[in-house]
Amino acid sequence: ISPLLDPDPRGLPPAIIATAEHDRLRPQAEQHAERLQAAGVPVTLITGTGLDHGYLGWGSFARRPARTVAAIGAAVRTALTTTPPPPPLDHP
């Protein structure tokens, strides 16, 4: 299953997408973020510069992953505590 197969992402809730610089899935995640933004979905893209796919498990012993994990946490807190804007009038 790929979110890129969704024919119409309009109306989806805000998205937080975290990538890793050295991850072969990064281009797909970035493409998904672009599609969501083009559909009017609020997107926060967090880039794990210098990191690879498994960095989420490294936060307890390495600074760079810990900073990126903290950025993800901050984005989630913001998403959960911010009142979303009303849907567009033309949306069913």
Score class of each variant (00 low, 15 high):
I1E: 05
I1A: 07
D8I: 06
D8Y: 12
D8T: 08
D8W: 09
P9E: 05
P9Q: 11
R10I: 04
G11R: 08
P13L: 01
P14D: 05
A15R: 11
I16H: 04
I16K: 01
I17R: 01
I17A: 02
I17Q: 02
I17D: 02
I17M: 01
I17T: 03
A18K: 12
T19P: 11
T19K: 08
A20K: 11
A20L: 04
A20Q: 08
A20G: 09
E21D: 10
E21T: 07
H22P: 11
D23T: 00
D23R: 03
R24N: 15
R24F: 15
P27L: 11
A29G: 15
A29I: 10
E30W: 03
Q31F: 07
H32R: 14
H32T: 13
A33Y: 06
E34H: 10
R35C: 02
L36A: 02
L36M: 04
Q37A: 10
A38M: 04
A39Q: 08
G40L: 07
G40K: 09
G40M: 10
V41M: 06
V41P: 08
V43N: 12
L45S: 13
T49M: 05
G50C: 03
L51N: 11
L51C: 11
G54Q: 09
Y55N: 13
L56T: 12
L56C: 03
L56Y: 08
G57I: 01
W58R: 14
W58G: 02
G59D: 15
G59Y: 15
S60T: 15
S60Y: 14
F61Q: 02
A62Y: 10
A62R: 13
R63S: 14
R63E: 15
R64M: 05
R64P: 05
P65F: 10
P65H: 09
A66M: 10
A66K: 12
A66H: 13
R67I: 07
T68E: 12
A70W: 12
I72K: 14
G73Y: 07
A74G: 05
A74L: 06
A75T: 02
V76P: 02
R77S: 06
R77G: 00
T78E: 14
A79Q: 13
A79G: 08
A79L: 07
T81G: 06
P84C: 02
P84L: 05
P86G: 11
P87F: 00
L89F: 05
L89H: 13
D90T: 04
D90K: 00
D90G: 00
D90A: 03
H91P: 00
H91E: 07
P92E: 01
P92F: 04
